[in-house]
Design a protein around this nucleic acid. Sequence first.
DNA 1: GATTTCGTGTGACGTTGTCATACGAACTAC
DNA 2: GTAGTTCGTATGACAACGTCACACGAAATC
Lengths: 191, 191
Amino acid sequence: MGTRAETAAATRRALVRAATELLDEGGPDAVTLRAVGARAGVSRGAPYGHFTHKEHLLTRLAIDTWDALADDVRRLREDDGREPRERLEQALLALVELGRRHPHRYALMFGTPADDPESAAAASRVEEQFLALVTDAVGEQDALRYGALLMSGAHGIAGLELSGHLSEDKWQVSGDELVRMLVEGVAGNVP
Amino acid sequence: MGTRAETAAATRRALVRAATELLDEGGPDAVTLRAVGARAGVSRGAPYGHFTHKEHLLTRLAIDTWDALADDVRRLREDDGREPRERLEQALLALVELGRRHPHRYALMFGTPADDPESAAAASRVEEQFLALVTDAVGEQDALRYGALLMSGAHGIAGLELSGHLSEDKWQVSGDELVRMLVEGVAGNVP
DNA sequence: GATTTCGTGTGACGTTGTCATACGAACTAC
DNA sequence: GTAGTTCGTATGACAACGTCACACGAAATC
C-alpha cells in the first residue's frame, strides 16, 4: 500500500467501515463526519475527499447493505436441496432478519426515497433475485404481482417489528410465523 | 383569550400547528425549533416552555396523526352500509392513503421505536379499532393473527410506496390492488 | 530534479439544539 | 389597591455539526 491510490482507497474503505460501525452501535445520530474521521484515523475534513457530502457516504452504506442482501438471496437460490416455496420463505425471512440484526442499516435502505441511481440499481438486484425465487414457487404467471405482495408483506413485518408495533404479547404471533402465513396464503393458492 | 392559561394554550396549539405545516411542506429537516417558533409568532426558546425537547414536540405530532387515523377507522366501523370485508379493505387503504398524503408524518409515526407511552397508547387505539374490523370480517378465532398479518401487509405497501420501491411500471400492480389482493388472500380463506 | 496533482489537515462560518438568565405581565393574598 | 409570587417568554451564550476555503506535502509525471 505504498502508492497513493492504494492508501486513498484504504482510507475510503476505513471511512465506510467506521461509519457502518458507528451506525450499528449508536444509530444515525452517532454518525457524524467528525466521529467517522476520528475512527478511521483521519481528520474531520478527509471524508470530503471521497464523498461529496454526508448523505453520499450514507448512501454508500445503504448500497453495501443491499449488495450483501443480494448475495444472501443469491446463495439461497443456488441451494437446490430445498423446495421452491421453502427457499422463498427463507428469502423473506432473510429480509426480516436483516431488520432485526441491523435495524439502523435497514432504516437507511428504506428510510428516504432512493433518488440515487446507484442505490436504486443495488435494490433492483435484490428484487431480481427475489423475483426469480417467486417465479420458481408460483410460476411465471402473475409472479410480479405476487412478488410485490410478498415483498410488501415481509417489509411490513420487518418495519412493524422495528417500530415496536408487533409485540408478540399483543398479537399472539411472531414475525417468523407471519412470514410463513404470508407465503402460505400467497403461494398456497397457486399450486 | 385574556387569561394567561388561555394564551399559553393557544401558543402551544400554534407551535404544534406550525411544526405540522413545516413538516408537511419541507420534511423533517425543515422542522427546526427556530422556524417553528417564528411561524407560531414566538421566539426560538418559547417551545421549551411547552415541550421538554424537540423530540417531545415531534412525538406530539405523531400522536395527533395516530388519533386522526383512529377517528377515520372508527367512522368506517360505524358505517353499517358496507360488508365487513369491504370496511376492512377501506381501513387498510386509509393507512396507505395516509402515507401518500402525509409521507413525513407517516415516517414519524413508524420511524423510531415508540418509547413514549402516550404515543404507544395512541397507536393502540388505532389497533383496537382495526382489530374490531378484522373480527367482523373473519371471526374472533385467529383475528389477532390475521390482524397482524393485514396490518403488516398494509404497512409494507405504504412503506415501499414511500421509499419508491413499488413502482407500478416495474411490478405491474398498484398499491390499492395489493391491498385488495391482501384482503382477498387473508379473509377469503376464512368464510 | 522541477512541476503538477491530489489526498489530507486546519481554520472559519452559519445553523441547530439546549441551557441560564432576565424580564414582565397575569395571578394571589392581604 | 398594593406587594409579592408565578410562569410564559425573550435573549445571550455555548458546544456540536456540516461544509467551505485554503494551505501543506508527498506521490506522480515529465
